[in-house]
Design a protein around this nucleic acid. Structure first.
Lengths: 135, 135
DNA sequence: TCGGCCGTAAACATCTCGTTCACATCTGGA
DNA sequence: TCCAGATGTGAACGAGATGTTTACGGCCGA
């Protein structure tokens, strides 16, 4: 599936297309501003420091980060991470998006990565936090 | 339905036919001067900046933008967005056209996109604002 | 065996948006 | 010019979506 995804249709301002560097023909490296994702070994780093995401958290993040700038609907995220149909009223995606948001906010306070689209889903885009994180 | 729509027969002055760029065989991109519509994930952009439309607002806009230069009657818009018959005296379409107009005016002040045809309906056409916005 | 980590689930809190109504303004015909 | 209907405008409300917190139980390594 990762093979089929396309570059986001529009080159948004600060949002750069992910840099995919092939290392050894297997590893993949996704970069978004301060964030570095290494899908091959479930790692996330900021400034070289590891962000302690669990398996599910990482997969949730990856489901979004693979389509930067695009709105991904919950059922799609669910299918990608948990597999199968998303049960009605299931909140798993929301809960894990929150967990990821928290950990990313700790590691990279100046940036906001996951954005909510009401009634639709979530969108991954690196955007600078307005205030700078003083709050 | 989006598949069946044709380029509008009307060769309005500044109104260019929408450019539809297929990306990944799924995405669709409608362009009208500064406006970019991405039906696949409910996004609208002006100069790369996202216009924060809600679901209904987007659908209302899309119902018009899919037929640029043509006058679309309220019942048709209603059926496309809300589904079913439009109740007598219903003002939903009007209210949402206004909301869309406001947001588009903020994002793209130099252009006017939605035009009223009294007693008939609305027409989507990108037209430059005469004065430049100072009214 | 024990303790900590993790995923799940449920409940509560908060926020957003669609709907609806009331009133203002405009249009076109009489 | 006047009137009736159409359209523009602004705001309040409630339902539902999303955010947040907590508790529970299983798993796994020490």
């Amino acid at each position: 599936m990762r093979a089929g995804h396309t570059v986001p249709p529009v080159g948004t301002s600060s949002q750069a297309a992910p840099i995919r560097a092939r290392l050894g023909g297997e590893d993949e490296l996704l970069r978004f501003e301060e964030l570095e994702l290494l899908p091959s070994d479930y790692q996330v780093r900021v400034h070289g420091v590891r962000v302690p995401l669990t398996m599910r958290e990482f997969e949730t993040l990856l489901a979004l980060a693979e389509r930067p700038g695009r709105v991904v609907m919950r059922p799609e995220i669910y299918g990608r991470v948990w597999g199968g149909e998303m049960p009605r009223r299931d909140r798993s995606v929301d809960v894990f998006v929150r967990k990821v948001r928290l950990k990313l906010a700790v590691a990279s306070p100046e940036w906001r990565y996951i954005h909510t689209h009401f009634g639709i889903g979530y969108r991954f885009t690196a955007e600078r936090v307005p205030d700078g994180g003083s709050k």
